[in-house]
Structures are given as C-alpha cells and as structure tokens.
C-alpha cells in the first residue's frame, strides 16, 4: 500500500543495526539475506502471528469445513455440500433475522453517531466540570452489558416498571416494551445506542480536537454562520474519522450478541433475533453446528463487503 510514500521510514528496514552503521553501499544495495534488523522484527511478530493462526485462522478453516457438514458439537457429521447455506438462504427465519440485523445496525451506527457527535460538540465548549461530564458520559460503554441490561429490564420490562408507569401517568397507557414485537425491537435499538454512543463520542472528540481552530477564525472572518461552519468545515474535516467510526460501529453492531440476548433473548416471537443470535441458537440450542456456522459466514461476507465499500470511501476522502 504505502510502499514508497514514506522514505524516511524505509531506512529503518534497510539499515543494518546501529551497532555498525553500514557503509553507504548497504543502503544502495539492499541485501536479500536476513539482516539482524529484519530478524528482530520477524521475531517481534512471531508471537502475534502464532496466536492469530491458532485462535483465528484455525477456527476459520475448521468452521468452513463444518459449514459444509451436518455435524453437531460432538460429531463431525457427513459432507452435505452447500446444503447449510441454501437452507439458510431459503428459510424465513434467516431473512427475518437479516432484516432485524439491518435495522439494529443502521439505528445503532447512526443513532450512536448522532448522539456521540452532538455530545462531543457540546463538550468542546468550555463548561464547568467538563472532565467530570466526560467520564460520566462514558459510563454506559464501561459498565458491563450484563449489569446495564438488568437495570434496563427493571426499568421497562413489566407493566408495573417505572417507565410504563410514567407513560401511564402521562395518559399513554402501559406499553409492554419487551413483550410487544415492534416495541421490543425499538427498545433493543435504543439500548444499543445508549451502550454505544460513548465510543462514538470519543471518536468524534478526538477528530474534532485535531481540527485547527484557525480554520474557524478564517471562516468567521469570511462571515460563515455557525451552521455553515458545521456543515462546510467541521463535517468535511472529520469525514475520514467519521467513515472509520462507521466501519467499526457496523462491525460492532452486526457482531453484537449480549446487547440483544441479555435484554430480550431474541424474543418476543423472534422479533429481536439477529443473525448472531440465530447462529448461536442453531449451534447451542438446536445442535446444528453446520447451519449455525453457515449463517455466521453469510453474515460475515456481507459485513466485509460493507466494510470494503466504506473503506473505499475513506480512500476517496484522502485523495480529494
């Protein structure tokens, strides 16, 4: 990728070691054999590569093999070709889960981005106790989901919970936030935004901090309104970091298991079953490892495609 763009750094690779700063010939004629520098660098990545092979590459290969078999956790099963994939693609459960995953991801990414960016903008101005606000607003992301889902459950689950009671007092009835399919989907999405906005707030804050205030000075002198400053300076200047945060949050949302599973368990009547929850159920409740892993792979394929599109977008921003 960036092979020749950073000349000063390439010196680190061709330079032998500092112990005996090589003659100029060394730099002009890069040697093929492994220099001490390269050997050390290779040793530096060995532990990481070994762990990646054992903990990521091996499971990936193993999983691909499982996805074309009809085995369970205890049994390898028979080779069934692409049956697990075609079964998944022709089942309504899969497409319903895909639909919910899409909604969950879109709301999760843009909801947490808007809230996070808004709060980052608010926190950019000087206010009393700014540091305290920053820490307090990070808490939803720091507190374990096991804990926060319990609290949300207490707040909304039954008709006698505080939030339905509040709705009742306002004359809106006592909605069943986790028992009504539509409301449960909405509640899970709001919960996800609550959990994730601090991450987006941190991403936005560090992007905003990198914008030189002089730019705003200049814009004000030219008579730009605050709205124009936001849409024409802030947003374009943080565009790159925004795309990156969208990619990361898309990955987090699609792969999310606990936020959904701990609040609703995927119910009521599968209304909040995402693809990951569906895959988990196939493997650990229906003991159909092959179909569960096939669902996860289909999902990953789409996820990687979306990431690549967004990644290209970053390149465009970079060259613009």
């Amino acid at each position: 990728m960036a092979t020749s763009t950073l000349p000063p750094r390439t010196r680190a690779r061709t330079k032998p070691t500092g112990r005996a700063p090589g003659p100029a010939g060394d730099l002009r004629r890069p040697r093929r054999r492994i220099t001490p520098m390269n050997l050390t660098l290779v040793l530096f990545v060995v532990p990481s590569v070994l762990l990646l092979l054992l903990l990521n590459a091996y499971p990936l290969g193993f999983g691909l093999n499982q996805s074309v078999r009809d085995g369970s956790l205890l049994d390898d099963g028979q080779f069934v070709g692409l049956a697990n994939y075609t079964d998944a693609l022709t089942s309504t459960a899969f497409w319903e889960a895909a639909r919910f995953t899409l909604i969950f991801t879109v709301v999760g990414v843009f909801g947490s981005w808007i809230v996070g960016l808004g709060l980052a903008l608010l926190l950019r101005t000087r206010t009393p106790a700014r540091g305290l606000f920053k820490v307090l607003l990070l808490l939803p992301w720091v507190v374990p989901i096991v804990v926060s889902s319990t609290a949300w459950n207490w707040l909304v689950a039954t008709p006698s919970s505080p939030v339905p009671q509040l709705f009742d007092a306002l004359g809106w009835g006592t909605p069943l936030f986790l028992a009504d399919p539509t409301l449960a989907a909405i509640t899970v999405c709001i919960f996800k935004v609550w959990v994730s906005f601090p991450f987006m707030m941190m991403m936005s804050a560090s992007a905003l901090a990198s914008v030189d205030p002089v730019v705003y000075e200049a814009a004000r002198m030219d008579g730009a309104s605050p709205r124009q400053q936001f849409t024409q300076i802030t947003l374009p200047l943080v565009a790159r970091s925004t795309y990156i945060s969208w990619i990361l949050m898309t990955i987090f949302c699609v792969n999310d298991f606990p936020t959904i599973y701990l609040l609703t368990g995927g119910g009521p009547v599968n209304a909040t079953t995402s693809l990951v929850v569906l895959a988990y159920r196939s493997v650990f409740q229906n003991f159909e490892t092959g179909s569960g892993v096939a669902i996860a792979f289909l999902m990953t394929a789409v996820l990687v495609a979306v990431s690549v599109v967004l990644y290209r977008q970053i390149r465009k921003v970079d060259t613009a």
């Binding site: 990646l52 792979f297 990953t300 990431s307």
Partner: peptide
C-alpha cells in the same frame, strides 16, 4: 516497517477483526 508483508499483515488483522466471535468460538 513498510512493504508488502507489513501491509498484508495489517489487512489480515482487519479481516480478523470483522469476523464474528461466534465463528471462532465453536471450533
């Protein structure tokens, strides 16, 4: 480091990060 191998390693990390945990948990 710079070069093909390092870029490849970086890309490998990216792909791994996109994989859902459930894919690696079962194997």
């Amino acid at each position: 480091g710079r070069g093909r191998v390092v870029s490849g390693y970086s890309l490998l990390l990216f792909v791994i990060q996109s994989l859902p945990v459930i894919v690696s948990v079962v194997p």
